[in-house]
Amino acid sequence: MLFVFFDKPDSSRLRMALMDAHLEWLRCRRDKILAAGSLRPAPESAAVGGLWIVDAADKSEVEALLDSDPFWLEGLRERVEILSWHRAFPEPVLI
C-alpha cells in the first residue's frame, strides 16, 4: 500500500524537533515500511509531507501503524491518504 502524508502548514520547526524520534521509529519498523521519505516542492525546499510504501494486508493495518508514529502523535501531520499501489514492473523497487 502507498501511504502519503501532508504536514500542517508552517510546521518545519516541529518536524525538526521530532525527526530523531521519527527516524528511530521508522528503523524499528523496516519489516513493514519498505520505503519512506519526505515530499518537497523542489529538492532544496523544506519538506511538506512524506511518502511510504508499506507491506500491509489492508488499510486497517496501515492505520494501526500510523497511530504510533511520533509525527502523527505530536500533531505534525495535517492529513494522510492511504492508497493501494499496483506496480507496473515486477522487479523489486531500487531506492
Rank of each mutant, 00 (worst) to 15 (best):
K32V: 01
L83K: 14
S84P: 08
H22D: 08
F5Q: 13
S68I: 04
A21Y: 01
I95V: 11
L94K: 12
S45Q: 13
S84R: 15
W72H: 09
P92C: 03
E61W: 02
L14H: 03
D20M: 04
W85K: 02
D69R: 01
R30Y: 04
I95M: 07
L34T: 04
L26F: 13
A56W: 07
D58A: 06
S38Q: 14
K32G: 02
P70I: 00
A46S: 14
V62G: 06
S11C: 06
L14R: 13
K59N: 02
R77Y: 11
A42M: 07
S11Y: 03
S12Q: 15
S38C: 13
H22R: 04
E74D: 00
V62A: 11
V54H: 07
P70S: 00
F5Y: 15
H22Q: 08
P90M: 03
I33Y: 00
S60A: 14
K32N: 05
D10H: 09
A35I: 10
L83P: 12
M16I: 10
W25T: 03
V62W: 06
L94G: 01
R77I: 15
P9W: 09
D10C: 03
P70A: 00
E44M: 11
R77V: 14
P70M: 00
A36D: 04
E44V: 11
A47D: 08
V48W: 04
R15L: 11
L83I: 06
P90R: 12
E78Q: 15
A21N: 03
R27N: 15
F89R: 13
F3G: 09
L34E: 04
E91H: 11
L39Y: 06
A35K: 00
A17G: 08
P9R: 10
L76P: 07
V54G: 06
L66R: 13
E78T: 03
A88D: 06
L65D: 00
S45F: 11
S12N: 12
A47Q: 12
R13N: 09
V54Q: 07
E91K: 10
G50A: 15
A17K: 14
F3W: 14
A36I: 04
P41M: 10
D10V: 02
W52N: 06
P9Y: 05
G50W: 07
P43I: 09
R77K: 10
K32H: 07
F3D: 15
D7C: 10
L94I: 05
R15P: 06
R29G: 01
V4F: 08
S12H: 14
S11W: 05
D55G: 03
V62T: 08
H22V: 02
K8L: 09
R29A: 10
R40W: 05
L66W: 09
E61G: 11
R40P: 10
P70V: 00
D67V: 02
V93E: 01
V80F: 05
R15W: 11
A47P: 12
V54I: 14
C28F: 04
A46I: 07
S60C: 10
F5A: 15
G75D: 00
F71G: 01
L65V: 04
L34G: 00
K8W: 05
V48Q: 13
S45R: 14
A57W: 01
P9Q: 06
V54R: 03
D58M: 04
F3P: 05
L94Q: 11
A21C: 01
P90H: 09
S68T: 14
R13V: 13
